[in-house]
């Protein structure tokens, strides 16, 4: 029995211990609570943020920016990846340019984007879209190019062409690689959003953190940090779940 429970307890010793030490440190005011708020204070602030509706007001817009940026950038990356994987001309025409743009860190565009879009929604969505586009593009392209040519020949022999060939062979064959790109893109999506929201915005989780900084509310800053961590984790879990569903056939998922 011990053998089963102990491995479940061990990973939690450090996190829980940290919280306990943290509470003791701040309760005794060994460190200024303005710099390091007590866990209990953080919880109370969290409660107030939730009850006032303020938290959801900001979360809502952050999630919307992330999702819309992902859909636009991911969609474009996916379509370009497919097109360049299938058409030699399209590849020659666009790949070099895409690779050049890819080497610009998307956050370096912030000053320019602010000039273009001001601080409205377009700016954040644009930055996210640019950031997620490339990992999805590259992995989709890679996925399509790496499909066993024997499968395609076999498919054609059995009368598949056009859409049917794409649906039965090309897309499922590229899917494992596309998921790698998607999960990578999710990471970039959050990082882009975190930075973009602290620089130019009037609403969102990042804005919440910036105003908290001005008022020295370190408890709220901590909450926003934890929120971002949760967003990232949940997004990755959803992607993993989708991957497991879509790739049931894959060696790594067959039980």
């Amino acid at each position: 029995m011990n053998n089963k429970i102990i491995p479940k307890i061990i990973p939690w010793i450090i996190p829980i211990g940290t919280v306990i030490v943290w509470q003791i440190v701040s309760a005794n005011e060994w460190v200024s609570t303005r710099l390091v708020p007590a866990p209990f204070t953080v919880l109370t602030s969290f409660y107030h943020l939730v009850m006032s509706g303020e938290l959801f007001y900001h979360m809502e817009i952050s999630l919307a920016r992330a999702l819309i940026g992902l859909l636009i950038g991911g969609g474009i990356g996916f379509i370009l990846g497919i097109a360049n994987g299938l058409s030699k001309f399209s590849y020659l025409f666009t790949d070099t340019s895409l690779q050049m743009v890819r080497n610009i860190p998307n956050l370096a565009l912030i000053p320019l984007v602010i000039i273009w879009f001001g601080i409205d929604e377009g700016a954040k969505v644009f930055l996210v879209a640019i950031g997620v586009m490339f990992p999805i593009y590259i992995n989709t392209l890679h996925g399509i190019k790496n499909i066993d040519a024997g499968f395609i020949e076999m498919g054609k022999m059995y009368g598949l062409k056009g859409w049917a060939l794409f649906k039965e062979i090309l897309l499922p064959g590229a899917l494992p690689s596309i998921f790698v790109g998607l999960r990578y893109a999710l990471g970039i999506m959050w990082i882009t959003l975190i930075v973009a929201e602290t620089i130019a915005t009037s609403r969102g989780v990042g804005y919440l953190a910036m105003t908290a900084q001005q008022f020295m509310q370190s408890d709220i800053i901590l909450i926003t940090i934890i929120l971002y961590a949760l967003f990232g984790k949940v997004a990755d879990l959803i992607a993993q779940w989708g991957e497991r569903k879509a790739l049931r056939w894959h060696k790594s998922y067959i039980k």
Binding site: M154, Y158, E168, I169, P172, L247, W249
Partner: peptide
């Protein structure tokens, strides 16, 4: 109608056995 069998089965790993047979 000519069909072909190769040294490797070329079964699509993402389709069940039945769906592989029904391909096309």
């Amino acid at each position: 109608s000519a069909t072909m069998m190769y040294q490797d089965s070329r079964l699509l790993p993402w389709k069940t056995v039945l769906n592989n047979v029904g391909l096309g």
